[in-house]
Design a protein around this nucleic acid. Structure first.
Length: 436
DNA sequence: TCTGGGGTCCTAGGACCC
DNA sequence: TCTGGGGTCCTAGGACCC
């Protein structure tokens, strides 16, 4: 029964805390009179709904629905629309995380409105996981005014599922614990929820699963993981184990620096001229560079893209991007902008009406340990062998693959190899699955 | 008239490496 | 001056998430 791998440590238990209708709830905190008004928060340019109140969800309005498409409905039901205020949402999010940290420092901020908590070591102070969940829920409500739901389970994917139940099924009162639920009840709930609701199952996969006869969460839970891997790949295999209560996804307590920083916007109206595009590209580059410096990174590659309006089927379509490698990685706004504009000029084509422009800054994943300037101009004949020897020597000393050679333009750069993260880790896989 | 923005991971396979 | 043919790198594209 007990696996040797875990005999020394408690088996993991996750709580997923998710703020209900986050943006809408933020707006309501500062406008309590809207508490039961059907409302949505709109995206940039007031284009589409990025958050919906329960009342609006009940009307069948989907996430991302364009505002103009729901105007009739809005009139009929008195749906209120707000423009988004990301500064406010960001601030509220941080307050919630601060409160969560009082419960445990072992916490992963998964998104602006969701955090995973490792709670196995917190439970001694509580009668049950549900009591802990209620405490979290109440404290956040009291201190921030925001409503949350809590899902508790032995794997992240199941905690997500638990959170789903906590939200949709009033019987749980906003806190659902699967870790102490008996199997019969668990299977019952699983059989009542569509497989499309599972974390990691998107539209495409759901379709394929359904053609295989896998329609509910329970169906997927009972599918043999190894077989699912052959059909769908390692992500699906991991997912299947997770549903069985075998934790394969660890808590990422430390947020790694972003690998890509994107800044892009749709235009309020269509844009034709290069000048106007250049202006927006410059703005985007500036914003992206700010984010870059915030996380103390430098960019080694800059991508510029421009697009026409893909929804206008009668218009000539054009979508192009260009990647500009930077010989000297930098966080300097002026240099980055200069390069970005050069890229834009290269892909700009007259005669189109543009809807969107953007910039992507790609980081150098790893810090160079051998300065590229040492090898300026590339390697001459004979150098390669000598450098390989150096490489081998360093690798022998510090472990295989500490260094790898990488080509950047005409220069050679040696970098620390990033940590070799295996696609899954197997240490928990010998645990007793929920389904046998 | 009007359709968001910002991310991640995985995989395949040809290029190309030292 | 000088290891090298067996890996490894890179990129695009697909899938997912909030």
């Amino acid at each position: 029964m007990s696996s040797s791998a875990n005999s020394s440590s408690k088996s993991p238990l996750f709580a997923l805390v998710d703020i209900n209708n986050f943006y809408v709830s933020c707006e309501r905190v500062f406008a309590p009179q809207l508490e039961s008004t059907p409302m949505v928060v709109l995206s940039n340019n007031d284009g589409c709904a990025v958050a919906r109140s329960n009342e609006v969800k009940a009307l069948g309005v989907k996430m991302g629905t364009p505002w103009f498409q729901m105007k009739d409905l809005a009139k009929q039901y008195g749906i209120l629309a707000c423009s988004s205020n990301y500064t406010l949402y960001h601030d509220m999010s941080q307050r919630v995380v601060q409160i969560l940290r009082q419960f445990t420092p072992h916490l992963e901020v998964y998104s602006i409105d969701e955090s995973f908590l490792a709670i196995e070591s917190v439970l001694q102070s509580y009668d049950s996981p549900v009591h802990l969940g209620k405490d979290i829920k109440e404290r956040i409500k009291q201190w921030t005014g925001l409503p949350v739901c809590v899902g508790i389970a032995p794997s992240k994917t199941l905690a997500k599922f638990a959170n789903h139940l906590a939200k949709k099924q009033n019987i749980f009162g906003g806190v659902c614990d699967l870790s102490t639920m008996n199997k019969q009840d668990l299977y019952q709930w699983m059989s009542e929820v569509s497989v499309a609701e599972v974390w990691g199952v998107g539209r495409r996969i759901a379709k394929r699963l359904e053609t295989m006869g896998i329609q509910t969460v329970l169906d997927l839970t009972q599918a043999p993981p190894q077989m699912m891997r052959l059909q769908f790949g390692v992500v699906m295999e991991r997912l299947c184990y997770e549903l069985r209560g075998v934790s394969c996804l660890r808590l990422e307590e430390i947020t790694p620096p972003k690998q890509q920083i994107i800044a892009s916007r749709s235009f309020g109206k269509l844009v034709i001229g290069l000048d106007e595009l250049a202006e927006s590209v410059a703005t985007h580059t500036t914003r992206a560079a700010e984010k870059l410096r915030e996380q103390h990174s430098v960019a080694g590659l800059i991508t510029v893209f421009i697009q026409t309006n893909r929804f206008m089927r009668n218009e000539p379509q054009y979508s192009q991007s260009i990647q500009m490698p930077l010989v000297a990685p930098t966080d300097n706004t002026f240099k980055l902008t200069e390069v970005a504009i050069e890229g834009l000029k290269a892909i700009y084509k007259k005669g189109y009406r543009y809807k969107k422009a953007g910039v992507v800054l790609s980081l150098i994943a790893d810090q160079p340990v051998v300065q590229s300037s040492l090898f300026e101009g590339g390697l001459g004949k004979g150098q390669s062998g000598r450098l390989m020897k150096t490489l081998d020597a360093i690798n022998a000393k510090y472990g295989k693959h500490t260094l790898r050679p990488a080509a950047t333009g005409t220069q050679q750069t040696w970098r620390m190899k990033s940590e070799n993260v295996s696609p899954h880790y197997t240490s928990h896989w010998d645990q007793l699955p929920l389904v046998s």
